[in-house]
């Protein structure tokens, strides 16, 4: 007999060892998330996926499902909190979507749409984060990094390279690359790396590919983030 938990009043089946988020997504139930990716070990930093488990907030991407637990997700309170976190991510970095190559394909943006965000609400930090254009094929625009560590995990766990890493603490946390010069060109990063293709936002960008796809045909012009996540589950990319 498969075990189940209650998500917003309906049963969701799960297998032993699955997190709430994994089980929910498998059942076609969407919970907003940014640092979770089906191919990687859970991380739990963005907190967008926060749900209430038996009345207390918990990150659904790291909390294991247990039989009979009562999980709330689509509540006004939680969505308001998720919106606030999304807004925090927008003001923390420099997100000028109109001039971002990732616009339309960006999961942060799509999540913000999903949550009905019309503005970033908080006062902007406007940090100064110089770009790294040293690599012949890739550009790093750190202004948009949300510290989800997907590139770090991909490079370490899949590419066996450690091209990316997190450094600093608190608001000074930032992404670094594995070279003495601090430049991407001096690392062994390559196009075929998994890490080259996991950034949910517009940091790790392929050069000479920007704005190729016209507005209207980009990922999130055609799909909502929920639909995208549904299709990604089956896909091996």
């Amino acid at each position: 007999m498969t075990e189940t938990f209650r998500l917003d009043g309906t049963d969701v089946p799960f297998e032993a060892g699955e997190t709430i988020l994994q089980a929910a997504l498998k059942a076609g139930r969407f919970i907003p998330h940014l640092c979770h990716h089906p191919e990687f070990r859970p991380h739990g930093s963005c907190k967008l996926c926060t749900v209430k488990v038996d009345g207390r907030q918990a990150a659904s991407c790291t909390r294991l499902a247990t039989s009979g637990m009562k999980v709330e997700s689509e509540t006004e309170e939680l969505n308001a909190e998720r919106l606030a976190l999304t807004q925090m991510l927008f003001v923390e970095g420099n997100h000028f979507c109109p001039s971002c190559e990732k616009s339309g394909d960006c999961q942060l943006q799509a999540t913000a749409y999903h949550l009905g965000m019309t503005n970033a609400h908080y006062d902007h930090f406007f940090p100064n984060r110089p770009l790294d254009a040293s690599h012949p094929d890739f550009l790093l625009d750190f202004n948009r990094c949300i510290l989800c560590s997907l590139c770090v995990r991909a490079s370490r766990d899949i590419d066996n390279k450690n091209v990316f890493g997190l450094a600093g603490r608190g608001m000074a946390s930032h992404l670094i690359v594995n070279s003495k010069s601090g430049k991407l060109v001096d690392t062994d990063f390559s196009v075929s790396d998994k890490a080259a293709h996991v950034c949910p936002v517009g940091v790790i960008l392929r050069k000479r590919q920007g704005f190729f796809i016209p507005i209207g045909s980009r990922t999130f012009d055609k799909k909502t983030i929920k639909e995208y996540v549904d299709t990604r589950l089956g896909e091996e990319d």
Binding site: G44, K47, M88, G170, M171, A172, S173
Partner: peptide, 14 residues
């Protein structure tokens, strides 16, 4: 703040 999670990293600074 260690900077790991969004609410504390950005929230304490705000």
């Amino acid at each position: 703040s260690c900077g790991f999670c969004t609410p504390c990293r950005v929230g304490t600074a705000l």
